[in-house]
């Protein structure tokens, strides 16, 4: 190994001055005509193919993505999203059994947390989301979960209804999502306290409640998952709803893959959100129903917001006193 540098130079030389025959294909080799034809059929040579029949991708002889799509759908998508959803549900269940929901003793005094419009838009988004989840899940997993129980005739009816419902509610989701975003983005911009909150996992590791503003770090993460995931399902959903927007079938396959993955992530995250909003943190649901939360709840979970509210109320009352 004393002359190792010889090897280094040889390797370098080989990369800089490759052997002559690799410079280009020799032209007088007889290619296998069968292989040639097969390459053309597979569309590997980008030779133009033509056909008299008009239609999406009708000039394509062999659809190279077909097998990948099948493999993705049967071997990956259905399996791993099943694992994810089942995993999230059992984690939540485990957490609830071990830890239980959070509760604060009520003070009886209420403060306004969500305006009427905010509540309406939240439930509009939630309602449309639920309808889309149910119908979408039927399309993606119904064959494995519902069909064996219901038989093909009944399942065909369910699936057809799901498809039509899903197609129709999709655009409503986009409207609701954008509206929701405009109403809530201001309160969901990341702040330094959110990082402390997240490091202490919202107090789940003990040591009491870390301070949080109007929304805590976890809620903000959910908001951004919803926004980004929502944009992904929306754009891909629009492509699937209006196939005329794209040419060929590969963009549609891509849209379906993006749509499926983003949807499953959204659904899994929404499970967590729904748990925390109802059983996990008692009193939260009330805030989204009536708009009012208990002062003790506000103090316990969103102390910075609560203090701000108090400051504002004080400023107002002192202004009123001065005015008198």
């Amino acid at each position: 190994m004393r002359h190792w540098w010889v090897w280094v130079w040889l390797c370098l030389g080989a990369t800089l001055f490759p052997p002559v025959h690799a410079a280009g294909p020799s032209t007088d080799k007889v290619l296998n005509p069968g292989a040639e034809l097969w390459n053309e059929v597979r569309g590997r040579q980008a030779a133009p193919a033509t056909t008299q029949v008009q239609g999406r991708d009708s000039q394509v002889l062999v659809n190279e993505w077909g097998e990948h799509f099948r493999d993705y759908r049967r071997q990956r998508f259905v399996r791993y999203s099943g694992y994810l959803l089942a995993g999230v549900v059992s984690l939540l269940l485990l957490y609830h059994l071990l830890h239980g929901g959070l509760e604060v003793t009520e003070s009886g005094r209420k403060v306004l947390r969500f305006e009427l419009t905010e509540r309406i838009v939240h439930w509009l988004l939630a309602g449309v989301f639920l309808l889309l989840t149910v119908t979408g899940v039927v399309l993606a997993f119904g064959r494995f979960v519902v069909l064996p129980w219901s038989g093909p005739e009944v399942f065909a009816v369910i699936a057809s209804a799901s498809k039509e419902g899903h197609n129709l509610f999709g655009p409503l989701f986009i409207v609701a999502l954008l509206w929701f975003f405009v109403l809530f983005v201001g309160r969901n911009l990341p702040r330094l306290v959110d990082i402390y909150w997240l490091i202490r996992a919202g107090g789940m590791l003990g040591g009491g409640h870390p301070a949080a503003g109007f929304f805590n770090g976890g809620e903000k993460i959910w908001f951004w998952i919803l926004t980004i995931g929502g944009l992904a399902v929306s754009t891909s959903g629009v492509v699937l709803d209006f196939p005329a927007l794209v040419e060929g079938r590969n963009p549609l396959v891509l849209a379906l893959v993006v749509h499926g993955i983003a949807a499953v992530v959204l659904i899994a995250a929404s499970f967590g959100h729904m748990y925390l909003g109802t059983l996990g943190v008692k009193g939260s649901l009330e805030g989204m129903k009536s708009g009012l939360v208990d002062e003790a709840w506000a103090h316990a979970h969103h102390v910075l917001w609560y203090e701000e509210l108090n400051r504002k109320a004080q400023a107002e009352s002192s202004a009123r006193e001065q005015g008198q």
Partner: peptide, 17 residues
């Protein structure tokens, strides 16, 4: 055809369109 819902997935997967 009574069961098909016209989703188009088969067209994406079929090698021959």
């Amino acid at each position: 055809k009574d069961i098909c819902i016209g989703c188009g997935y088969c067209f994406y997967a079929c090698p021959f369109g």
